[in-house]
Amino acid sequence: MEKCRVKALVVTRDRERLLARCLERLLNQSYPVEEILIIDNASSDGTQDLVSSLEGGRVAYHRLQSNQGGAAGYAAGLSELTQSDWQGWVWMMDDDAEPIQNALEELVRYIETNELRGCGALASAILTPGGIRDVTHRGWFNLSSLRQCPSPHDLYEKQDPFKVGYSSFVGLLLNTQAIRTVAMPRSDFFIWFDDVEYCLRLGEFYDIFVVPSSLVVHPNPLLDSSRRFSYGEFWKMYYDVRNTLIVGLEYGDSSAVWRYFLAIGLRRILGVVLFDDHKLSRIRILLRGWIDGLRNRTGKTLDPQAFVKRGA
């Protein structure tokens, strides 16, 4: 049987130290990656110098002219890796991901044995740096409520691969044939929900499986239910609301959008009123996300840097 060929895709911005750890883990996988393509969203730290010291071997580098967001970064990377007639698999992840040494080997094992027929993507299980299983990255998307429903812990404990309807891009291994069939992630989402939307398209043609024995360490501060977004990072909530609505209207119906508003939207506004500073500004951001989502207004419509400067 022909050896399974794998290239890794890492999207980064201004996280040189985390990227260095991610690259170290990728370069030392027990099943070697053929190439690591780094898409840099116009970093202003030492990222370029770090990558320059590694280029020429298995590391390739593509710097975008401006910060176009993680969604555009993944779209650019997948496009670059599938422009030629190269056939294989692309292992995607953020710059703060740290795959365990045999993570890729565990994924490839199921590809080479052909146990998972009709599979277009395999996903590693995610652990927090503290070793806690993070199930929020894999599951099913409920189009009636527009909510992500993570797969339960007991599926992981059985250690057998299981199907899901969505996966984040952290530790997702995509077949190039599937990529060419489904095309690229939506770069106009900027951040958040580009992975869910992509998996909804992918699921029309291929199955997505989670392999519990393949592990990737990745931090997720959102697991702390008591955590509140600081004002400086509240711009992310705009994209969360906007992109959720766009996905809901495209794949669901308008009634789901209003159920989402009653179940989630009003609760978020109440949370701002009770617990946060800059209350009026935060509420305006949420409402703007609703309006732009309903109008299908995409792109980098809220600039993070400008927002942070304005709030400083």
Rank of each mutant, 00 (worst) to 15 (best):
W89Y: 13
P32W: 09
G69V: 04
L78T: 05
E233T: 12
D292C: 00
L287F: 10
I126Y: 02
Q148A: 15
W192D: 07
H62S: 14
A256C: 10
S43A: 08
R297Q: 11
Q148Y: 05
V308K: 13
A75Q: 06
T82M: 09
F307M: 06
R58F: 10
L274V: 13
Q101T: 13
V196K: 01
S281D: 12
R201H: 11
L155A: 08
E115P: 00
S213T: 15
A256W: 03
I179A: 08
V257Q: 02
A103F: 02
V170Q: 15
G252K: 02
R310Y: 12
D253A: 06
D40H: 06
E197R: 04
R310N: 14
S145W: 04
F209A: 07
Y74R: 10
S187L: 01
Q83A: 15
W235I: 00
P161D: 02
I291E: 06
I269V: 15
W140C: 02
Q177I: 12
V217N: 03
S167T: 14
S167G: 07
S53E: 14
S145V: 08
L223M: 12
H137M: 10
L274C: 10
T136E: 14
Y231W: 08
I291R: 12
L222G: 06
G293A: 03
L122F: 01
